[in-house]
Nucleic acid binder design. Structure first.
Lengths: 222, 222
DNA sequence: GGGTGTGAAGCCGTTCACAGCA
DNA sequence: TGCTGTGAACGGCTTCACACCC
């Protein structure tokens, strides 16, 4: 019906707004200004107002936005109506940690099944989620109406599994394998590359070391 | 000396290029064209050439880039001279998984110490890394010349720990807590927000469901 | 001929600036 | 008065286009 064309970045921030606002639900003041929210999330007030625009939530020039309205508007936009079924492939240490994370922090999402290529892992329950063998992938996906998958398999297996997921009509993949996935354009991929992230942090930290060490060995507080 | 002003995005991709190129080290052909590398990582050839520019690595118009030169040039740029000491705060499931991940996949990085507020966790070894109590944070950071930290503590503790890290002269933080960190501008923060990422994947997957379901119930391959 | 290196153009997300309003 | 909503300007990253070179 409406195609508001929401960008990745905007959705990312909306998700964050909602989370922070939910925490301060039922605080002293049921309203919040764009600049207050902006301070909370480290962005500009304009950015906040732009983002809120796409939710259709209207603010009040004298009071700001009603927190409960914001949370509802964002939820209506980003959440599905019922609980969202998700699967996870690759039950290693990271995969197990994520199962735990999703269950405790994102109750709206439900990991309906896990999968692993290792026979050792199959047919066990991992933190309340049953682990199946890969051959059951397609059946379980279609039975449960699953559209999204979390991929925590080793790098060398990632593309093969991604191919299986695409064939099974998965439309969104959260990829933790440190390789780019080649999928049709209609499939959304969000990659979390821990290696790149670590490289970024150590690089920019080191750059800062050099910047402060070399020019003038200042010790601000010593 | 030189301030090539490397952007986050560029560094992210360079890290990825290096990883993929390392894998195909000593393959049939010791050279690679920008368009081949571009295909591997799902970006445009121009993008690849731009990124490579900042490394100073020169390509050969008829052969492309020498893979070994590329890997070395990128390493010289993004890695420190010796192994990079890093600390991790918050030894929960995710923290433990990351200790394992870093040790096996990023040997250049060394997690020299872990920390946790829970006395239960303190003074134990987690996958070869000793877990200290928070009070030792500052001493261990300065003793080991640590500049980067991985933060895997619960949301409500994140800002407090970040403050401690800043006081202890940490310059780069990889933040897994689902809250924005408020730190001075000289501190680099890379946040990995699993909740936002999950929201993104399910949202865009669902958007795709609607796009393909409603307009014309086509079943491409059935 | 075909690929690299790079100025110039293009694009998209962010920020500015201000009209409108409580 | 001061905040919201939004067209317009801005800026940084990406892509184009082409000179140069093997």
């Amino acid at each position: 019906m409406n195609a508001p064309k929401i960008s990745r970045r905007t959705l990312e921030r909306l998700s964050l707004y909602r989370r922070l606002l939910s925490d301060r639900f039922a605080e002293e003041n049921p309203f919040i200004y764009s600049h207050s929210l902006a301070t909370l999330v480290n962005v500009t007030p304009s950015q906040v107002r732009r983002d809120i625009m796409v939710t259709g939530c209207a603010g009040n020039p004298s009071k700001g936005y009603r927190v409960s309205d914001l949370v509802m508007a964002i939820s209506r936009l980003v959440d599905s109506d019922g609980p969202e079924p998700v699967i996870l492939i690759g039950v290693g240490k990271l995969g197990s940690a994520l199962i735990d994370y999703v269950r405790t922090r994102r109750p709206h999402l439900r990991i309906v099944a896990a999968f692993d290529a290792k026979p050792m892992k199959v047919d066990r329950d991992v933190l309340g989620v049953h682990c199946h063998e890969m051959s059951e992938l397609e059946a379980i996906i279609s039975e449960n109406g699953v559209h999204s998958a979390i991929l925590t398999v080793p790098a060398q297996a990632a593309q093969d599994v991604a191919n299986l997921l695409v064939k099974a009509r998965i439309l969104g993949i959260l990829n933790f394998a440190p390789v780019p996935l080649h999928v049709p354009t209609h499939v959304f991929v969000e990659s979390i590359d821990l290696t790149s992230s670590l490289d970024k942090v150590t690089f920019f930290a080191r750059q800062e070391v050099e910047r402060t060490d070399l020019p003038a060995s200042e010790d601000p507080e010593n």
